[in-house]
Design a protein around this nucleic acid. Structure first.
Length: 408
RNA sequence: GUGGGCGUAGCUCAGUUGGUUAGAGCGCCGGGUUGUGGUCUCGGAGGCCGGGGGUUCGAGUCCCCUCGCCCACCCCA
């Protein structure tokens, strides 16, 4: 074959599509269960919309081109600017808090590796217009709900929670000034991956202060963390006690977070973060929207699929059809088509061979189709306007009217 | 952008010190006679051995270049 998908882009054959849809179904269900409404926006936006928020580094990872109207456009790499734009346009008319979610496809020109391509689907859940810590906990619970629905437990995953205000305040107690704070935060963020991060902290702050920070990372100073308490409390109420752990190493980039921040990891830490989010009270205004507090998270399909595969918990194939309808002899092919039509009209997934084949062969196809039952349309039964219903697992057969065939 | 690993059938891989017509398993297609499948059995299709150049009587195998893929770093909205 001459053509392959572009680097970092994926073909979804039916087997992969089953997985993706299974994950997406869990996302939709969890969000809707918590009263979130689905929205979406354009895949293509003006380049400036994204450039405004992001630095140069990020602009370099944008898929951009000039369209035929000479406009600089970009494929969306994230949802927040679009969300801010949409909320901004109707802010006065929307009841608060705004609880919205979406499952958009994103595009980022990056070097592909395990858990990361150049295109992916990401579940985004946001609450706009609530400053209450209960809302922070609620979005965490929505994220965990979806993962639980996919079969993951507190033995598999952990929500690591921190707070940007707490981080800043603790660093101030060490006399870390505002200018050096970003650097220090970046080092804390890297402590787990980069052995050099410790050294960097020591060089920047001296071994005494660095040690203090490392001790907080080792054992979270929960007694001093007033900023986190309301969120942790609400998490308990949402039944997240086994999932959530305060963790001083969670920083979440350097961007725009203003309060609680959190990431979900697999307990074994064999993968990058499954999800991440936090509070960003200033961002919407800075993007030209209304001055509303906001929180949200993103959960991508790529890492999650890897984890589910590792755990043997990939969504199961529901099969192509419910029943497979088989004519016995050529003269029964017409009646078989009518049976199929009746079944489909009643929303049973039904299929049959559109070819003259023998019964044995047709049953082989039935087994392959994923159907749990076969309907055999033979002259003997059809003369009484009946058919034979065969359970393909047990082999049990019974003669029934077509109307009696139910969804199993 | 930096570093490492790997390219043989749709998939997972074998292929001897360089030696005839490049193999296996799975998958796919077809047979194994009458209205009963999955197992089994027999057969079949499917390869520019990633591409180009070189060494050699002879290259999947050795050398060089190139392309592609994977992994880690960077970054992670």
């Amino acid at each position: 074959m001459r053509f392959k998908p572009l680097t970092g882009f994926r073909d979804f054959y039916p087997a992969e599509m089953v997985i993706r849809r299974g994950i997406e179904a869990a996302w939709h269900r969890a969000a809707q269960n918590a009263g979130f409404e689905e929205f979406d926006g354009p895949v293509l936006e003006s380049f400036e919309l994204f450039a405004a928020k992001s630095g140069e580094e990020i602009a370099g990872q944008l898929y951009t081109f000039t369209d035929k109207g000479d406009r600089q456009v970009a494929m969306r790499p994230e949802m927040t600017p679009t969300l801010a734009r949409m909320v901004g346009a109707r802010a006065n008319g929307l009841p608060k808090p705004i609880k919205w979610y979406c499952v958009p496809q994103f595009f980022r020109y990056e070097r592909p590796q395990r858990g990361r391509g150049r295109e992916f689907y990401q579940w985004n859940v946001d609450v706009i217009g609530s400053a209450d810590p209960a809302s922070d906990a609620e979005v965490i619970s929505v994220a965990v709900d979806a993962l639980k629905a996919l079969g993951l437990t507190a033995d598999d995953i952990v929500v690591r929670l921190n707070d940007r205000r707490f981080l800043s305040r603790m660093l101030k107690t060490l006399d870390v000034d505002e200018a050096t704070e970003p650097e220090v935060l970046a080092s804390i963020d890297k402590l787990e991956r980069d052995p050099a991060a410790v050294k960097k902290l020591e060089e920047r702050l001296g071994s005494k202060r660095a040690e203090k920070i490392l001790s907080w990372c080792e054992r979270f100073p929960i007694d001093e963390a007033d900023e986190l308490k309301p969120v942790l409390e609400a998490c308990e109420d949402f039944g997240l006690g086994a999932f959530v752990e305060a963790d001083f190493r969670i920083v979440r980039g350097l961007a725009y977070y203003t309060g609680p921040v959190w990431e979900i990891f697999d307990r074994a830490r064999s993968l990058r973060a499954i999800a991440g989010g936090g509070r960003y009270d200033e961002l919407i205004k800075s993007l030209g929207g209304p001055d509303l507090p906001a929180i949200g998270f993103g959960m991508g399909d790529v890492v999650l699929t890897e984890l589910l595969r590792d755990k043997g918990k990939l969504p199961e194939d529901p099969g192509r059809v419910d029943v497979f309808v088989i004519p016995v002899g050529d003269e029964m092919r017409g009646p078989a088509r009518r049976v199929i039509t009746q079944l489909r009209a009643r929303s049973l997934r039904a299929d049959g061979p559109n070819a003259a084949i023998k019964l044995g062969k047709a049953l082989k196809l039935a087994a392959q189709s994923g159907a749990t039952r076969a309907v055999i349309v033979g002259p003997d039964e059809w003369s009484n306007t009946q058919v034979k219903l065969r359970d393909l697992n047990s082999g049990d057969e019974s003669v029934v009217n077509v109307e009696e065939i139910e969804r199993s």
